[in-house]
Each structure stands twice: as C-alpha cells, then as structure tokens.
Design a protein around this nucleic acid. Structure first.
Lengths: 191, 191
DNA sequence: ACCTGAACACCGTTCAAGT
DNA sequence: ACCTGAACACCGTTCAAGT
C-alpha cells in the first residue's frame, strides 16, 4: 500500500522485482504484466514507460539471471586452484543455480532466442576450466576445448532441466543437485 | 469452412491437430484455445466437452510427442545390430526429433511435471543400448547402466534444447542436428 | 451426448489527458 | 518526463439453453 512516487527509474527495478516475486511464487502460469503493475501500485499502463511490453520485462529478468549465474560460476571457479576440483565445482554450481533460482533459470531459457547470449560470460568460465583440464590431461585433449566445453555445458543443462522437472524419478533428488552434476561428470570422464 | 458435424470424438482429434498446427506455425506465443476452436469451426465452449481446459489439450499434444519420440528411437535402434552404431543412431535420433518436431518437443517439456513420465518408454530404449555398450566394453562399465543412461540422456537433451535455441552460435547448425549428437557422444567416450 | 450463445473476469496494449 | 483512466480486442472458462 506504500504508493510512493517513483523517480529516476526506481519503478523499473520495482517492476523487475515484482516480476521475480510472482515467478518465484507461481511460475509462468501465474505471471501477468497487470499483476506486476498492481503489486507496484501503479496503473497497468505505467510499465510501458519502462518496457516495450511483457516480453521486454521478462528479458530484463532473464538478464539478471545471466548475471547471477555468471557470478555463481566465477565464485565456484575462484574457490580452488586444483583443476579437477574446479571443473567439478563449476558443474555443481550450474545445476545448483537452476535449483536455487528456478524462476530465473526457466525465464532465461524461455525468452525467444536471438536476443540472449545464453550466458556468453558463463560459457567462457567453463571454457577456461576445460582448457586447463585438457592441459593437465585430466580429460581427453582430442576434441577442441570449444567442442568439449559445449558437450559438458549441454550435459549440465540437460541435468538441470530434467532434474528440475522430475525430482523424484530418474533424475534424483535423493542426492543434492550439485552431486548430480559432479557424479555425472566424474562418471563420464572417470575422474 | 467445412463445418461438418463431429461424431465419435472426431472433434477431439481435430482439436489436437489444430493445436499442433498452431504450435508449428507460431509457437506457444500464438497458441490459444479459442483459436483452436475457431479452426475446427466450433464454438469456444466446444473443446470443454473433450478436455478439462487448455492444459489438458496441450498434455494430449505432449503425449503424441512422447509416442512419436519413442517410435523414432525404436526405429533408430532396430536399424542396426552393431552396438556402437546403435548408440550413435539413438543419440542422433533424439536430437533430430527435437529439430523435426520443435512444436512437440517444446510442448513435452513445458507441461507441468508430475503428469509426464518424460518418455519412460524412450528411456528404456536408451537404457538397453547402454547395457549392451557396457557389456561389449564400448563404454566404461563403472557407473551403473541407469546412471550412465541418465548422463547420456541429459547430454542429448541439453544438446537438443541449446541447439534449438541458438542455431548459429556455439551449438552449431553448420553440422546437421544428428551429427551434433553423434560427434558429442563419440568425443566424450572416444568412440 | 454434444454443441451454441452469451456472459464473466482477466489479459496485453494503446492513447488522450493530467501533473 | 512519468503516470492515470478509459478503452480495445482478445483470452480462458462457465452455464443455461438448444438439438
């Protein structure tokens, strides 16, 4: 009920926050631009001063997601110098991100392609770890770092998506999400 | 404009077909239950005699997707007796399915979890190939078939999702979709 | 049994008007 | 410059009524 006057684009951030709130509560089913406006205490037309429409607001949410994911991966990567440990922590961090922020994760991979770099920065972090892992012969040097990183990225993404969808079936929740990633990766490369 | 009278649940299938048509044309953005009814030449209330609502119609579409995927994998699996070849063809078939039927693929993995077995049958096909591949020492016998199949499934799913999203970036379209899968798999296991 | 017609609350978006 | 109020076409869903 605090209908303070918004200034300097404070409404813009309030709308993004409100959108995340709704997505976290009820997912994309529940989401509506009118509801976002309502929560911010403004008219349904107000958001159009800050976003071209619903899609652009969701794109802004997705962008926050890319940034958050990148930060998570950087943190995991900086944690340790050991190459094997670093690779596994990166893997764990990716899947954990999806489980910690399903609202962001789903939004990131729902928006129409083209606009998003799908975590360009994030891919670079993984790529560097792969380069190092190949240099120390931890994993095969054969496919190029790019291709290898792509394969690993796809695996992590698949694990994240599938484990998010069916927690109790084959993509278990018995093990915590990051263990799912690390065990899968170490199984594939015999780490 | 053929407003024939529907009988014996012929409308049900007509609605599913119409839904697929719309999804194939304009994706989920474009989809609406009213539009489906319009295309079938019935009132907007008519679909409710056959489906509890929009979600149930989409679930029916998803089910057709699961069946189609399963059939594709069976066909790929039956094609050859050579274990290596079979595994690679299965991998190719999964990613190819996503590219051949993006409307089905997206719908399958969009519906709320719980209801779907995420291609229970399909997983069994892959599982069998993994069992055979482990038996002939084509791939490591170490992680259980279940875990190994899960890892491979996740990889294929990730490749499908990501290549569908960004055809021209890192998950290339230079190579046809099935090559993406086979090359990734052979890279991981050195096949 | 299956479908229509009309209605309801809600949505995304637009635009003239206010301050 | 930023927001409101009112409007538009459209959506998902319901329900009495028709055949």
């Amino acid at each position: 009920m605090t209908r303070t006057t918004y200034h300097h684009g404070a409404l813009r951030q309030a709308l993004i926050d409100g959108a995340r709130e709704i997505l976290a509560e009820g997912g994309h089913e529940q989401f509506s631009l009118n509801e976002v406006a309502r929560r911010a205490g403004v008219s349904t037309a107000a958001p159009y001063r800050h976003f071209s429409g619903k899609d652009e607001l969701l794109a802004a949410v997705a962008e926050q997601g890319y940034a958050t994911l990148h930060a998570s991966l950087e943190r995991a990567s900086a944690d340790t110098a050991d190459v094997r440990e670093r690779l596994l922590r990166l893997a764990g961090a990716y899947v954990r991100f999806a489980h910690d922020h399903p609202d962001l994760f789903v939004t990131m991979f729902r928006s129409r392609p083209g606009a998003d770099p799908v975590g360009h920065d994030s891919f670079e972090v993984l790529l560097q770890a792969v380069v190092d892992a190949q240099a120390t012969a931890l994993i095969p040097a054969k496919p190029s770092p790019e291709l290898m990183a792509r394969s690993i990225w796809a695996t992590l993404h698949g694990l994240a998506v599938l484990s998010l969808r069916q927690p109790h079936q084959r993509f278990g929740m018995d093990e915590p999400p990051e263990d799912l990633a690390t065990s899968t990766l170490s199984a594939m490369f015999g780490l």
